[in-house]
Design a protein around this nucleic acid. Structure first.
Length: 872
RNA sequence: GCCGGGGUGGUGAAACUGGUAGACACACAGGACUUAAAAUCCUGAGGCUCGCAAGGGCCGUGCGGGUUCGAGUCCCGCCCUCGGCACCA
């Protein structure tokens, strides 16, 4: 053992030892309980960043802990290797995306290995390899057979920078998820879709089973995104005098059918068929035509953007309210959207804020049909503002035979009435759409389908999978490189043998990550994506750890995919992830000066820019990102401090779900702690390696030694609980620091010639400390374990157990309160009874002085915790 | 507007079930060691205040109420802040 702690040296050494021993390899073992710990797989951008380090340090600590607890731990890693940056690099450098990607994987793999993470590297996957993506293709063919995959013409979100279409989830708010400054365009294209809507109800309902196991905000975001809305569709008939639309039905969707007697008009979207027909037949007014044309040219986001005024035009048509026969004008308006519901609504201004605003603006009537049951208002009192209460306290009025029912009762009764009379039905709408999975790019999984002029769409026979990407594509093209590769495109139809064309779309890369962790369980399987019995042992994932940014992308897709795999008979459950942890971001305080824009904290000296001396303004603490130039390179930190220190700081500085501010002095503190541990172990390791452990030496222990043993066992209890139950790694580290401080105090209290009992207590404390450090700082733990005389590998050794007897305090400090305010602290034997506590409290001088002769009316004793005297 | 987090020293944070608020660390100050510095080891510290000192008093977890013997923690009403959704009928 070296006198000084040289992290880089021992880190290399121990990494080699683990690799040679295959320490982290795990295989199916039905005799052992499994634990599947998973972190979101990285995109191989080229370099690991601090966010990765944090994410993987958390997963690594948990896996190591569980492994030491005796679980059969699966802890794999791989690469989400398809995607745009590789293709852009290929265009820019006139090179190949596969070469770029594989090089990046190589350098990032080396970085991960340098950090000493306990992965089973045998299971590594890269989603861009044919061995992986052939199963994407296999899944698509199964889904095609089940009718879960289909093709249709659709208006899609198109990003001009990506040069491809995007899923709705990737175009939130009208901007590309990868180019947040680029508004998406709408294009009409034939596209592949996965039928998410088949699973919409289940995706929503089974979120309830994840309560308390997934963060509430993720569940809330998913509920919001799925957006289920229960209501009814009702047909309004267009009045007879209006050719050519006379007698046609306008179907509206409403969640408030109970308010239908209060409808004052019907409003259709500018794209609605009714408007189109009016325009086509020449019966539309000039005003209507201009309005419809104008609205259609504006994107949905702009049309409904905040602050956009409600605008509408009367079509001149009338519709008949099916409940009371009332004639209602039909309008068209900008805020009614064609993509949701039926593209038509009934406007009930008295009970909907939006309708109130619209009808007020255009002078339409505002009849009241709902009021509070106990309201004194007259039923025909004028409406000042939309009244939207819809619970049992609200009742229907002015609504024929439905008057007097509560809102929930009326919704039920009126929906049934509409169904009985054939002009409406109950209907549930969702905001979530089918998943558009087509991409017009070349660095992705090819769709395994062939378009035959005779046979239509024909799946590639499964024994011909994978459909491989050509390696020699020309990327300097405006269209899809795959579409311009004749050898790829031109094929014979598998059914009729005639000339046919291969589909040239590739899959959304979120397909790859929807099931990758099932592949880890059986990553070399050549018959199936994974063997069901192998996956049945390892899955579902026990703990998933990743960033919040995937709350509605990856985490919805993978839940969907799991349900599809269940329905294909591959697995037996529908929720893939038992527990989810969304770790916070890694941030850095930022500063700016006029001349040098962004500054690192260490470039600011006494509030002044280090380069030019100008005053530096304190900026916000912001997420590390390349564009903000406020990143800290993990490699450099490892070079300076060692991997263990970097990892320890990240675990200590904040609880995992909170944002963490990178601090150079904080990292130095973590390094100081490890050096402190090193020094005390170095001081003793020769003497302790020979010291005997075991046997009952209780009677010979000094007070100091007994105190140290107590701290040791208390710390084991605390750290086990902090990691295993609460996932509060920061407090686990704090507890280990306390134990270290206690070891130093004990060392200082020792005479030169320490007794066997003292050595026993020291060795017990140091061994427990080293073992508990293993999940956080595995390299130094390993090195110290060796120095204490062990051949075994510590990171796979058994987790220490605490002895409840030894952890028990011998004396307690009991606070005494007078009327709830602290007046004294008593030191009493741990076994003191409640009566003894009370007596000791009353005997206390300070208590008596504070009491000042007052009468005690009540005494509360919380056993072993506190005494509270209530005095008048 | 709706939904979900937060608000505790100079700083990052602890306080697990309602029971000693501020563990642990950073920064800071003092002492020891040293020719000196660094490193290390030890000690101190929420704020205000009285006292030469030992020691005492008051205040203190965003604000205002409430429940309780006792509230950072529970309840009611606000304020601020971060994140998500938002004319979805």
């Amino acid at each position: 053992m070296n006198e000084k702690y040289f992290p880089v040296e021992i880190e290399e050494k121990q990494q080699k030892r683990w690799a040679e021993a295959g320490a982290f390899n795990a295989d199916v073992d039905s005799a052992k309980q499994k634990f599947y710990c998973l972190e979101m797989l990285p995109y191989p951008s080229g370099r690991i960043h601090m966010g990765h380090v944090r994410n993987y340090s958390i997963g690594d600590a948990l896996s190591a802990y569980k492994r030491m607890q005796g679980f059969n731990v699966l802890h794999p890693i791989g690469w989400d290797a398809f995607g745009m940056p590789a293709e852009n690099a290929a265009i820019k450098n006139n090179s190949r995306p596969d070469v770029w990607t594989l090089e990046n994987i190589d350098s990032m793999r080396a970085q991960l290995k340098q950090l000493g993470f306990n992965y089973d590297w045998r299971r590594e996957i890269a989603t861009c390899t044919p061995e992986y993506y052939r199963w994407n293709q296999w899944f698509f063919i199964q889904m095609w057979k089940q009718g879960l995959l289909y093709r249709r013409n659709a208006t899609v979100n198109w990003c001009v920078k990506c040069n491809t279409s995007l899923a709705n989830e990737q175009a939130e708010g009208g901007f590309c998820w990868r180019h947040e400054d680029t508004p998406v365009e709408l294009r009409e294209l034939e596209q592949w879709f996965i039928r998410v809507t088949n699973y919409a109800d289940e995706l929503l309902d089974s979120l309830d089973t994840l309560a308390n196991a997934w963060p509430e905000r993720v569940l809330a975001m998913q509920r919001n995104w799925i957006g289920r809305s229960k209501g009814a569709e009702v047909d309004f008939r267009v009045a007879q005098e209006h050719a050519p639309t006379n007698g046609k039905k306008v179907r509206v969707f409403t969640t408030r059918v109970d308010t239908i007697y209060g409808a004052s008009c019907v409003i259709v979207a500018p794209e609605h068929a009714l408007v189109e027909e009016l325009v086509a037949s020449g019966k539309a007014s000039n005003e209507l035509m201009t309005f419809a044309e104008k609205q259609k040219a504006i994107s949905k986001e702009d049309r409904i953007a905040e602050g956009a005024a409600k605008e509408g035009v009367n079509t001149g048509l009338f519709a008949e309210n099916p409940f009371n026969g009332q004639r209602l004008p039909i309008w068209t308006a900008n805020f009614v959207l064609t993509g949701y519901g039926t593209g038509a609504i009934m406007a009930v201004p008295a009970h909907d804020e939006r309708d109130f605003e619209f009808c007020t603006k255009y002078g339409l009537p505002i009849p009241r049909v709902i009021k509070l049951a106990d309201s004194a208002d007259a039923d025909d009192a004028p409406v000042e503002a939309a009244f939207t209460n819809k619970d049992n306290a609200a009742v229907v009025i002015n609504s024929g035979k439905f008057s007097g029912l509560s809102v929930p009762e009326a919704i039920k009764a009126m929906t049934e009435y509409a169904e009985e009379h054939g002009f409406g039905e109950a209907k549930t709408n969702f905001k979530i759409r089918d998943w558009g999975v087509s991409r017009q790019r070349a660095w992705g999984t090819p769709l395994p389908f062939i378009h035959c002029p005779k046979c239509g769409i024909v799946p590639v026979p499964e024994d011909q999978l994978p459909v491989e990407l050509p390696k020699d594509l020309n990327f300097n093209t405006t269209g899809s490189p795959l579409a311009e590769a004749p050898d790829f495109v031109n094929v014979d139809c598998p059914t009729c043998g005639g000339a046919a064309r291969r589909d040239t779309d590739t899959m959304d890369t979120f397909v790859d990550s929807s099931w990758y962790y099932f592949r880890y369980t059986d990553s070399k399987n050549e018959e199936l994506p994974f063997a069901p019995d192998v996956a049945a042992y390892w899955t579902p994932v026990d703990q998933y750890i990743g960033g919040i940014e995937h709350a509605v992308l990856h985490l919805i897709y993978t839940r969907l995919w799991t349900k599809i795999m269940r329905d294909l008979g591959l697995i037996t459950f529908g929720e893939p992830v038992k527990k989810l942890l969304t770790q916070g971001m890694v941030c850095l305080a930022t500063y700016r000066c006029e001349e040098h824009d962004w500054l690192y904290p260490y470039e600011v000296i006494d509030g002044k820019c280090k380069f030019c001396g100008r005053a530096a303004a304190v900026g916000r603490t912001e997420k590390m990102s390349k564009s903000k130039k406020n990143t800290v390179d993990p490699d450099e930190m490892i070079k300076i401090h060692g991997a263990d220190t970097v990892r320890l700081f990240m675990m200590f500085a904040a609880p995992p779900e909170k944002d963490l501010e990178w601090s150079e002095t904080g990292a130095e503190g973590a390094s100081r702690f490890l050096n402190r541990v090193w020094r005390i172990v170095y001081k003793w390791h020769d003497k302790l390696a020979a010291a005997k452990l075991g046997g009952d030496q209780q009677s010979t222990f000094s007070d100091e030694a007994r105190a140290l043993r107590r701290k040791t066992h208390q710390t084991i209890r605390r750290v086990s609980n902090d990691i295993g139950e609460r996932m509060n790694f920061n407090t686990a580290v704090a507890a280990m620091m306390e134990l270290t401080n206690e070891i130093y105090a004990f060392d200082n209290s020792l005479k030169d010639d320490s007794s066997d009992a003292d050595r026993f207590a020291l060795k017990e404390a140091m061994q427990a400390l080293v073992k508990m450090l293993a999940p956080f700082t595995p390299h130094i733990a390993e090195e110290l374990w060796e120095s204490l005389g062990h051949d075994e590998i510590v990171v796979t050794s058994a987790w220490p157990e605490y002895d409840a007897e030894l952890a028990k305090a011998e004396e307690l400090e009991i606070p005494v309160q007078l009327n709830g305010k602290l007046v004294a602290r008593l030191v009493v034997p741990a076994e003191a009874t409640d009566d003894e506590l009370k007596a000791a409290a009353l005997a206390n001088d300070r208590v008596q002085a504070k009491l000042d002769g007052r009468q005690i009316v009540k005494t509360i004793v919380v056993p072993k915790r506190l005494v509270n005297l209530v005095a008048k």
